[in-house]
Amino acid sequence: MKIEARDLGWRNIVRGVSCEIRPGETFGLIGPNGSGKSTLLKLLAGLMPRAAGEVRLDDVPLGQLTRRQVAQRIAMVEQFADTGEALSVRDAVELGRTPWLSPLSPFGPEDTRIVDEALAAVDMTGMTKRPWSTLSGGERQRIHIARALAQQPRALILDEPTNHLDIHHQLALLGLVAALPVTVVMALHDLNQAMMCDRLGVMSEGRMVACGAPSDVLTPDTLGRIFRVRAMPMTDPEDGSTLFRFLPMEEPR
């Protein structure tokens, strides 16, 4: 699904962002803390009230869709989503089917299959009965991803999905997301992980200051300006890919 942002804004947190995310691509959003990444993601999912500008999903203005229709197209995984309810792992993932269910189309065998697949995708098949309160942060994060997958969206919006995950599950998740046939937009902190995206948008003070292929965007110059680090590109001798090593910025004397 194509996602188009036209002059998107929300108060002073996000200002005049326009970009086009192509069908099927994995789009990474990077930027320092407080640069407006999370807000932009919510704007793209139509979750912010009184937003300026417009979002189009496959050329349909988001404002013309009901919340339910939006949720059938876009799944969102926010940071810090928690619950006090004694939900089981399966309960939480089943919530993902909500936009597809109604009193006349209740939860059926097809939905069970979709939920099973989503659980398998995040490697949680054996833990379906575990109560939410007993899960670690990483496990909870994987359940949120599974819930989003169970929503069977055409676009997945993830806010720092690798948070809380150990390195194995970080890589597994990024691999999973990259392999999905859907459009993925995600905010990332780890710039080396961002290198795995098809394209990147760089946020700074509410504006998207750069957008393009990782190699075009992640230049030592941009990184120095936006992130205030000294980045040293290195080449992996095994596959020739570029890695960064980060050092503190030398203060100008």
Binding site: L47, R68, A75, M76, A81, T98
Partner: peptide, 8 residues
């Protein structure tokens, strides 16, 4: 917020 994301 999560409810809205689920189409509510």
């Amino acid at each position: 917020g999560a409810a809205a994301a689920l189409g509510i």
